[in-house]
Design a protein around this nucleic acid. Structure first.
Lengths: 191, 191
DNA sequence: ATTATCTATAGATCTATAGATAATGC
DNA sequence: ATTATCTATAGATCTATAGATAATGC
């Protein structure tokens, strides 16, 4: 039982990270506190020294989850290998992303759950959608730069819809057809 | 306490309809048996004379829910007023649909939940996605008829993604911007 | 006699809290 | 002394079942 204040900060972060993954995998109501704490190597009783309520953890975890994909594409945008619009699409619409919602786009995994969440959670979603629109806008081809913000909303919706539908079907051929077709048509439209 | 066999068939259908609405509103795990039975004017005990399990009701309710929107656009397609591709889009991307998931498109409301459902439920989703692709394909402009099936998958994904995102945000201006922008860009792309 | 529905409840699960335990840190 | 974590459990909720009740339908 080691429990310095440093340990506590690390423990807190570990719980948030695990929740960010498990909530994207199982939905916002799909995993209990006891299970999350167990995955963090702890027991249920300690939870409320870290969070006021389950909802408080959900909000924190969503904040962390949203940050993940955004950090990734922003880093790619400003980093050494500037990502093209096409590679952004391929980075989103592939089988690895489809099969790993826990580390993927939060909207792709939880848009439906967010729609049913309270106002505070949906305010976070608003803020993040704005971020995502801006992020996607930066990757748009030169010809769309002037109306980039508007132009970014269609591909963003199509990406979220396509990965949701690709995950919802049991037929793998159909699932891959959805991913590949939407990827191709989005690229064609931008060319 | 009236309970002829005719009554029972009607009661069964009433429970399914109520579930189809409430599951789209609250998510596949968001409403309990007692609440559904109460809305149908019944009590919880009678439930299992109608359904083997809660899951069995969910499957039946999804079947009914999927049928709703499809019946609507198919009727429009073959009916007196042939719906245009543009009016199909407007029929989907508007505030009334956004604000009434209980009577709207099942994928728009439940794609994320379906992705986390068992294989049997996702098999139903596969079948229905195929139906929806065909339904949308019939509305495509003349120039896209040859590759209609492929061409239908992008707008379908964009519609589902856009309504999910429009519901997920708390900011009404942003929500309307999503609906209107995706509608306009889809129409422009088809023109 | 059969059965559609009712009331009541068993058993499981989940959030949150109470009180004990064993470290930290002044 | 304080506190991070533990064990144990209260209270709520949810699915499913048991047994009673009051209609249907032979």
């Amino acid at each position: 039982m080691g429990h310095s204040q440093t340990d506590k900060a690390e423990t807190h972060k570990r719980i948030v990270k695990i929740a960010a993954k498990r909530l994207r995998e199982n939905g916002l109501a799909g995993v209990g506190i006891a299970e999350l704490m167990k995955e963090a190597g702890l027991t249920v009783g300690g939870f409320y020294k870290h969070f006021d309520s389950r909802d408080a953890l959900v909000i924190e975890a969503l904040g962390f989850a949203f940050g993940g994909w955004k950090r990734r594409i922003d880093a790619a945008a400003s980093g050494g290998t500037p990502l093209s619009y096409e590679s952004l699409i391929d980075d989103y619409l592939n089988e690895a992303h489809r099969d790993n919602p826990g580390t993927g786009c939060t909207f792709g995994a939880l848009a439906g759950d967010l729609a049913r969440s309270d106002k505070r959670t949906r305010a976070l979603a608003s803020e993040q959608i704005r971020n995502y629109i801006q992020s996607v806008a930066r990757f748009l081809p030169r010809k769309d730069r002037r109306t980039a913000r508007s132009k970014a909303i269609l591909p963003l919706s199509a990406l979220v819809g396509a990965v949701s539908l690709a995950r919802a079907v049991s037929d793998d051929d159909l699932s891959i057809e959805i991913l590949k077709t939407v990827a191709k048509l989005l690229k064609d439209a931008a060319a």
